[in-house]
């Protein structure tokens, strides 16, 4: 059965056929599907790539190492999708890559996905000693990303900071205050109404 789903993707002979078979494979949530789902990210078929990313995110941490291993030397489009899968999974092993992508990637859709992902890292997977340092890097990076020239990346940075604020509410109340202060600045200064409104929504939730 599992094998059949994988073969169906290999045999798909149309764009829509590929999307449908990848959706089926993703929904099956089987570990054996990981290499195939990662391969699909490089097919330059956005519909299929979205389905493959969804499938990889559902599979969660078991997909993290294969994704990281495959990233080097991968074509740009596929890298972007892989980074979005890692952002969706939130495993701290992808943290360095997300930190770098959120600031430096040239595509705003990747910066936006990475910024959001930084707010939803599964911190429990790190030791207490590691958490503080990693959260500090996320905090500083998201403050920087909240000044991105693209509105949608700044919006994603607010979502990321909102997520981080919830994670550190109890453990690091100082950061929570700093994040709230940044949100107030955004409300007063951001030129995009949607970004200000999202900061407002975060404040209402956190206070």
């Amino acid at each position: 059965m599992n094998n059949q789903l994988i073969q169906a993707v290999e045999k798909a002979d149309s764009s829509q056929g590929l999307i449908d078979t990848v959706k089926d494979l993703a929904a099956a949530q089987i570990e054996d599907a990981i290499p195939m789902l990662i391969t699909v990210l490089g097919y330059n078929n956005p519909g299929a790539a979205v389905a493959a990313v969804d499938g990889l995110v559902l599979l969660g941490e078991t997909a993290v190492l294969p994704l990281l291993e495959k990233l080097d030397g991968y074509n740009y489009g596929a890298r972007a999708w892989a980074i979005r899968a890692l952002a969706g999974i939130g495993d701290p092993r992808g943290l360095d890559l997300l930190l770098d992508s959120a600031v430096n990637d040239f595509s705003f859709s990747v910066r936006r996905g990475a910024a959001r992902g930084l707010g939803f890292i599964d911190w429990e997977k790190l030791s207490e000693a590691e958490v503080f340092d990693a959260q500090q890097r996320v905090f500083l990076t998201l403050l920087q990303v909240s000044q991105d020239p693209e509105w949608v990346v700044r919006y994603a940075a607010v979502v990321g900071l909102h997520g981080l604020a919830k994670a550190v509410e109890v453990s690091a109340p100082k950061w929570l205050e700093d994040i709230l202060t940044r949100f107030e600045e955004i409300i007063d200064t951001d030129t995009t109404l949607a970004v200000s409104a999202r900061a407002q929504m975060a404040i209402a939730d956190l206070r």
């Binding site: 936006r112 996905g113 910024a115 959001r116 949608v152 919006y155 994603a156 979502v159 949607a194 409104a197 999202r198 929504m201």
Partner: peptide
């Protein structure tokens, strides 16, 4: 309604 729209936007990032 505004919060609902933003929640949908969050899910598309």
């Amino acid at each position: 309604e505004a919060i609902e729209v933003m929640t949908l936007m969050d899910s598309l990032l």
